[in-house]
Amino acid sequence: MSAGTGTKLGWGFVAPALLWTLAFFIVPFLVMGAMSFATLEGRSLVWGFYLDNYIELATRAYLWRAILVSLEITLTVTVVSVVLAYPLAAIIAFRVPPQWQRLALLLAILPFWTSYVVRSYAWLLVLAREGLINQTLINIGLIAEPITLANTRFATVTGFVHFFVMLLTLTIYANLVQLSPNYRRAATDLGANAFQTFRHVILPLTLPGIATGAFLTFVLCIGDYVTPQVLGGNNELTMPQVIMVQLGRRADFPLASALAIVMMAIVMLAYLASARWLRLDRV
C-alpha cells in the first residue's frame, strides 16, 4: 500500500467523526456564538455585532450570583462524588471476587436506568418534611420537629451526588483494574504500608480516572437544569435556570446564547485545569 493510499484510507476512517463534530458541534457553536452578538428589538431578532448581551451579563447582579451558585454547587458535587466513589470503586476492584465484579458494577449503575426527572421527584419525597428521613429521625427520637431538607442546596447536591457517584465509580474502577498487582507488591517489598502504597503508588496512577470522571461530572452538573429546579426549589438560581427563563416566554435567544457561551468558557477552563491528568484512553 502506497503512502498516498494510506493517507486517503486514514482520512476515510476519520471523516465520519470529523463530519459529526462539524455538524453537531462546530456549526451549532458558531451559530450560538453569532446569536450571542445579536439583539432583540422589541420582540424581533436583529442580527449584527451588538455587545448588549455581554454588557447585561456584566451588569446584572443576579447573573453573577447564578454563575457563582452554579460553580459552588458543581465543585461541591464533584468533590463529594469523588470522595464517595473512590472507595466504592476500590472495593469492587480489589475486594470483590472477579466473577462478581460485573454484577457489582451492574448494581452500582442501577440508578442510571430510571428516569432522571422521576429520580429527582423521588428524592423530593424522601427529603420532604413528612418524608422518609424526617420521619425516621423523629421516630428514633433524634429530632422533635421535621427539619428542612427539601428545596435546599443540600437537596440539590444530594440528587446530583446520587447520580454522579455511579459515573465516577465506573471511570475510577476502569482505571484501577488496569493497574498491575505488581505495583502493590513492589511497594510492599520496599517497606511501604497500605496507606503509603495508596498515597504514593495507587492514587497517582489512578489520577486519570479521577480526572476524567470529575471532568464529566463538572460538565454534566454545571449544565443541568432538572435537579436544581426540582430539588433546589428555585431557592438559588443556577445558570441553566436563568437561561431557561430567557427562552420560556420572551424567546431571548441572544442573551441565552451569551449565557451559554459563558458556561462553555467555564467548562473550557475546567478542562484546561484538569488536562494534565485527563487520559480518556485509560478509562
Binding site: 421527584y121 423530593l124 420532604a128 418534611r129 413528612e130 418524608g131 428545596n151 426549589g233 428555585n234
Partner: peptide, 18 residues
C-alpha cells in the same frame, strides 16, 4: 417562601405537606 415551584413541584409540595 419555602420554594418557588412549577406546576408538578407545587402540587407535590402541597400534597406532601412540604
Amino acid at each position: 417562601a419555602a420554594s418557588v415551584a412549577g406546576v408538578v413541584a407545587a402540587q407535590t409540595a402541597l400534597a406532601t405537606g412540604e
